[in-house]
Structures are given as C-alpha cells and as structure tokens.
Computed example of a mutant assay.
Amino acid sequence: MITIKSHREITMMHEAGKLLASCHKLLRNKIKPGITTLEIDRFVEEYLTDHGATPEQKGYRGYPYSTCASINDEICHGFPRAEPLKAGDIVTIDCVVNLNGALADSAWSYPVGKISNDAKKLLTVTKEALHIGIAQAIAGNRTGDIGHAIQEYVEGKNYSIVRDFTGHGIGRNIHEEPQIFHYGTKGRGIRLREGMVITIEPMVNVGEWFSLMDENGWTARTADGKLSAQYEHTIAITKDGPLILTSQDD
C-alpha cells in the first residue's frame, strides 16, 4: 500500500534526513586507510544517539548493525568488520535514521585514500546516475521514467545497473510501496503523486549486474568480483519538484 505523507510528516522526515546528511559529511574525513568499518558503525550509532535519534536498521529482520558497510565488490548490506580499510578501497555506508518516529535513508560511497582512476570514474557515474533518476521524480511521471533514465545513462557509460535490489517507498517503515527499479521502460510503472516519499539508490557495477549472496544471508556481492558503488537519497514528491530530504548539498 502506498502512503501519502502530510506536510508535517515530510517536514519531520526532512529533519531526520538533515541529521543523516550531517553524519555522512563527517564520514568524509573519518574514512581513511586503517579505520575499520566496525569503528565507523560505532561512530554512526553514537552520533545518532547523541542527537536524539536511533539507527533504524539495527534489529530490522535480525540485522545486527547500525550501518551496512559494503567494500569493493560488495554491492549492498555488507556487515561492518574488524579488518582495517586499505588505500585504494571504496566503501559504501548505508544508514536509516529514526528521529522522533520519522525515517530517512541514505547510502554513500567513499574512496579510501588514493583510489584508481577506474574507481573514481565508477563513483562519478554512480552519483550522476542518482541525480539523473531524481530529476525524473516529479508528480505525474511514472516509476519507469526513473529506472529508464538511470539505466540509459549507466549502460551508455559501459557499466551495468544492479537489478536484484531496488529503491522503495519509506515512511513509518523502512520499506514501503512502491518499489523503485533502477532500470525499466519510460511511461510504465506506478504514477508518482505529490506526498509520496521514496528512495532512489542505484547500485552500479564495473562488470555484469549479477549478484551472489554471502553465507550471512545479507551481503550481496558482484558475481564476477568487480567493483560496485551506490549512492542513495530519500526524495519527497512535491508540487515544486523532487525535494531531497537527505541532501548534502552535493
């Protein structure tokens, strides 16, 4: 069931989004060679707690951490761990904030120290794909318009778009209807309406789009072992166009 949010609900979600964005901004300088994703996870949880919020995915369907931390060939839902990050790695930190009952969801891919030109290009293309998708998130458009725009751009750059994981509606729950596919056909899918709040979160692979699941039942990685990146924002559909609730002014 798709829920339409009131102005008050969107305002509350925007406050949660601002807090999440501020956390991501701090991570820009914290993520360096030698830090562990477990240390990042603890930092995020402490930061949210200090600001009166909680990490919503901790305990969600049994998920044990405050963040997902996906390194290199991990597409999404990577478990934070004790091994230090190395120069040349890329890591995606995904977090859902609950602030006074309002949720916001954002993932961001970070370079660890100096990374290769190929990895830099992957991050650039993936972030641009996110914004290309957001530009289609306007009342009257359909979900397929978002997916088509992202797929056309990503494949035009000779990358692949992951199909096993999608964006989603968000509100009182992390995952609500509708699903937001990052591939698809223009003019198809659910029509976007003012008051809907969704996530757009393209996951882009250097190689093929196929994924494999780790034994932990959560972590997905590229089937060919090549790099993957992801950027995600929470978006409100408004009469004035898409409102990025998790904006970092990027």
Rank of each mutant, 00 (worst) to 15 (best):
A229T: 00
A137S: 11
K186Q: 10
D41G: 10
A21I: 05
G144W: 01
V154F: 01
V206A: 06
V112Y: 08
D214E: 13
T143Q: 07
H175C: 13
A223W: 03
Y65V: 09
T222N: 08
Q248Y: 01
C23Q: 07
H168F: 04
W209V: 09
D118F: 10
K32A: 14
I146E: 08
G59Y: 01
S22R: 11
E128K: 13
I90T: 11
L26E: 07
G187Q: 04
R8S: 13
S211W: 09
E46W: 00
R191G: 08
T36E: 00
V162E: 15
F181G: 07
K5Y: 12
V112L: 07
G241H: 08
F165G: 08
N72A: 04
S211H: 12
G34P: 09
K239N: 13
E155Q: 10
G144P: 04
R193Y: 04
E15T: 05
E232C: 15
D89C: 03
H77K: 05
V96K: 13
N216Y: 03
N72C: 05
E45V: 02
K120G: 11
T92A: 14
Q151G: 05
K239A: 14
L20W: 02
Q136C: 06
S109I: 00
S228W: 00
K86L: 08
T37N: 09
C68K: 10
D250F: 05
R163E: 14
G133Y: 00
I200S: 14
A129V: 04
I2F: 05
I180Y: 10
Q179V: 12
D240I: 05
T67R: 07
W108I: 06
T199D: 10
Y231C: 10
V125F: 02
H7C: 12
Y159S: 06
D224C: 06
A223R: 09
D89N: 14
Y47P: 05
H148K: 11
V125A: 02
T36G: 06
N141W: 00
N29A: 13
N158F: 08
D105F: 04
I161V: 15
R188I: 06
I200Y: 13
P111S: 05
V154M: 01
I235M: 13
T126D: 13
V91G: 11
E56K: 15
D118L: 12
I35A: 09
V162T: 14
A69S: 15
G189A: 08
N158G: 00
G147F: 00
G17W: 01
N205D: 07
V197I: 10
G62C: 06
L243C: 06
